[in-house]
Amino acid sequence: MVKGEIKFEERLNKVKKDVLEMSNLSKKSISSTNNLINEFSEEKFNEVLEIEEKSNILNLDVENGCMELTALHQPVARDLRFTASMMKISDNYERICDLAEKIAYLSKERKKINPPKNIEKMQKKLVKMLELLEKSLKEEKTEKLWELSDIDDEIDKLFDSVHNELEKGMKKGESIKPSTDLLFIARYLERAGDITCKIGSRIIYMKKGKRVRIK
């Protein structure tokens, strides 16, 4: 193997390692929000904020890594798909960390009312989706990714039930502000589920070259 090839493989591996770290960060971030929603803790709040900060930096590292790969090695075929997809996937993970940060702020400002049980279920399902993605990225296997579609459907249904429950509560006279905060939290979790599906579709494109849409 010539020197240039080793460098090329090293660069590919570095980008992949960074994206796996992004995956890990987004999973941690979403997991932490559970504690925040049920019982606010300053420590968890700061953790989510720190993760968001880290994810911004790491996302830039991934972008730079992909730009270098493109500029220096002009990747084609699977390497081209890898480079283009990693940039997108990293962006999506960063977006999930942003949503977790928004949830953290809403939890901090939220006046205490008991959140609907289904919010916790949504959050747990989202973590499961993120674990599926991480495993798929690590092992470079795509078979299980189609399960994302089913889990996302379940999250959507849970969101609808949360929406209805909160709406009913507000109609009965519960205070508007904490209820709408919870509604936003549920909405952000639902949105993170959609983004996770987009990442899954990207991984399939990266591995197989087929444009698919998991939704």
Binding site: E143, W146, E147, S149, K210, R213, I214
Partner: peptide, 20 residues
Amino acid sequence: MNDIELNIEGNNETAERKRN
């Protein structure tokens, strides 16, 4: 050109195997 597959239903693993 590449196929655009929208929300494949049924046995996804079979579809995946077919693609392989």
